[in-house]
């Protein structure tokens, strides 16, 4: 969009919006323009909701899932007595916990806040690893499920955690890899197929 059509305030808003996942510069500009059409009280409500984010929402003291700080320092998962505390599923980010939760998983989580990548300046100190080591060292923890991503950084992160948390009596597991359910086999990529064949199950 040309500068003439874009007052300073609108441009700054678009700049902020463009940092959101899935929004490029163009779609951020469109979103900012769309907000121009909102009524003043609607905008005010949006602004209040944004402002309250940092005050009302924080990370769970145990697992670092986002949680409503007004209801205590534990997230709903960690506070739920019916969840299986012997099983900790390690994920890189909250968005990766969402499909796991939807699958009916009943254990607990631990959100790392990223994955190891020295080239991007991410070492163990930048991730929630020490707290994971402490949690996994507690007697009630029997299994750590390493659900980091399948790329090379995710694999390195899993390997680092496996060495960090290893102790007798603790099972370290990794998500299985292979073919998605319902997938058309003729369009399966070769790497997934190779893994599915290497780790095939007895019928």
């Amino acid at each position: 969009m040309s500068r003439e059509l874009q007052p300073e305030a609108l441009r700054r808003l678009a700049e902020s919006l463009s940092r959101l996942p899935g929004l490029g510069r163009r779609s951020a500009e469109r979103a900012a323009l769309a907000l121009l059409d909102w009524k003043p009280d609607e905008l005010k409500q949006l602004a209040e909701r944004l402002a309250s984010l940092s005050e009302d929402v924080g990370n769970c003291r145990l697992c670092f899932l986002p949680t409503d700080l007004r209801k205590g320092e534990l997230c709903p998962v960690c506070a739920d007595p019916r969840r299986d505390r012997s099983l900790i599923c390690v994920v890189e980010s909250v968005s990766m916990a969402v499909p796991i939760e939807k699958s009916g998983y009943r254990g607990c989580y631990h959100v790392l806040g990223g994955k190891l990548s020295p080239l991007d300046g991410v070492g163990p100190g930048q991730l929630h690893l020490e707290s994971l080591r402490q949690r996994s060292a507690e007697a009630e923890c029997r299994e750590v499920l390493l659900a980091t991503s399948t790329d090379i950084e995710g694999q390195a992160t899993a390997a680092y955690i496996a060495e960090l948390c290893a102790r007798p009596g603790l099972t370290l597991s990794r998500l299985a890899q292979g073919i998605p359910i319902g997938a058309d086999l003729s369009h399966t990529d070769s790497a997934s197929m190779a893994m599915a064949i290497a780790r095939r199950n007895q019928f």
């Binding site: 190891l116 990548s117 020295p118 080239l119 070492g123 163990p124 090379i152 950084e153 694999q155 390195a156 992160t157 899993a158 390997a159 680092y160 060495e163 960090l164």
Partner: peptide, 22 residues
Amino acid sequence: RQRNQLLRLQAPDAQLRPWEGL
């Protein structure tokens, strides 16, 4: 490339090992 970066940072062996395994 990740291991080379750790070498330049003089990172401890525990950080090198996962990359060496891969």
